[in-house]
């Protein structure tokens, strides 16, 4: 068999493999979800589980449809809180990290306080915020910010510090000043780490907003969860949970998208673009 024939055969087999892999990547999780839903539906009915303990997925779906306007309205409130809290955590977290990196004196004095502040459980702080800031948007935004900003600070500081010393030597031998070295070399080098922190932080911002709504809520999906819990409307509880999950996943994917746009070289590395030989 000539090499051309062998190559054609290998390429056909590879194409088949890729199609199968693609199908599997979509179908497997889909099948798993459908399977779980089916088991859930059948199991709940078969064992006669009361609806207030575990409603079947069909009931949850009905509730999601009938209470759609309610869920959307509260979902929107939570979304606004999350976004504001997240933006604030970046606006405060990144400068804090820069200050920590650039001024060791600042790092020595502020860092221990920062770390200790993270040990304080936010659920305990939330009622205090309600007392100070009342009900409404602000306390929830602040709690979301408090939980989300720390990973951003850490990942930024680590990213700025972790750099091949030779890169700095190179900058010096090229005559790059401190500012140019920072913006051309140190900061781009830190971006992958920073994005790691941003991805963690968005999930925490969701948590923060919900915690705030639990404690002092009159709106938002967290509030829906609390009131559904209070009235034993477990189907609505599930609907609220699904809503929050969707919001969290969508935001996370947005950050991932931002990362792909900001670091085009990195995403192609993940897909394995490297050559093995010369």
């Amino acid at each position: 068999m000539s090499i051309e024939d062998v190559e054609a055969r290998v390429q056909r087999a590879q194409a088949r493999r890729e199609r199968r892999a693609w199908a599997a990547a979509i179908l497997s999780p889909l099948a798993a979800v459908v399977g779980v839903l089916a088991l859930w539906e059948i199991g709940v009915r078969a064992f006669g589980v009361p609806a207030y303990i575990l409603p079947p997925p069909s009931t949850v779906a009905v509730v999601m449809q009938s209470k759609a306007p309610l869920l959307l309205a509260h979902g929107w409130v939570s979304t606004v809180e999350i976004v504001l809290g997240y933006v604030l955590s970046i606006a405060v977290g990144v400068p804090l990290a820069l200050a920590t990196f650039l001024w060791p004196a600042f790092a020595r004095s502020v860092y221990p306080l920062l770390v200790s502040s993270q040990a304080v459980p936010k659920m305990a702080v939330a009622p205090l915020f309600i007392v100070w800031f009342g009900f409404g948007l602000l306390p929830k935004v602040l709690i979301a910010f408090l939980i989300a900003f720390f990973p951003i600070v850490i990942s930024t500081v680590v990213g700025l510090a972790a750099i091949e010393p030779e890169k700095i030597h190179l900058a010096r031998s090229m005559g790059l000043g401190a500012a140019a070295t920072f913006f051309k070399i140190r900061l781009p080098n830190a971006l992958p780490s920073i994005f790691g922190g941003l991805k963690v932080a968005i999930t925490l911002a969701v948590v923060g907003a919900v915690v705030g709504e639990f404690v002092g809520g009159d709106a938002g999906l967290g509030y829906v969860l609390m009131s559904a819990n209070g009235s034993m409307d477990t189907a609505l509880l599930f609907a609220g949970l699904i809503g929050l999950t969707v919001i969290g996943v969508v935001f996370y994917l947005l950050i991932e998208l931002a990362e792909r746009l900001a670091l085009p070289w990195r995403s192609s590395a993940r897909d394995g673009g490297a050559t093995e030989s010369m």
Binding site: E164, E166, K167, P188, N189, L191, L263, W265, A269
Partner: peptide
């Protein structure tokens, strides 16, 4: 200057 490792900027 050329170092032992290429020290290229990945981005």
């Amino acid at each position: 200057i050329v170092f032992q490792s290429p020290v290229l900027l990945e981005w």
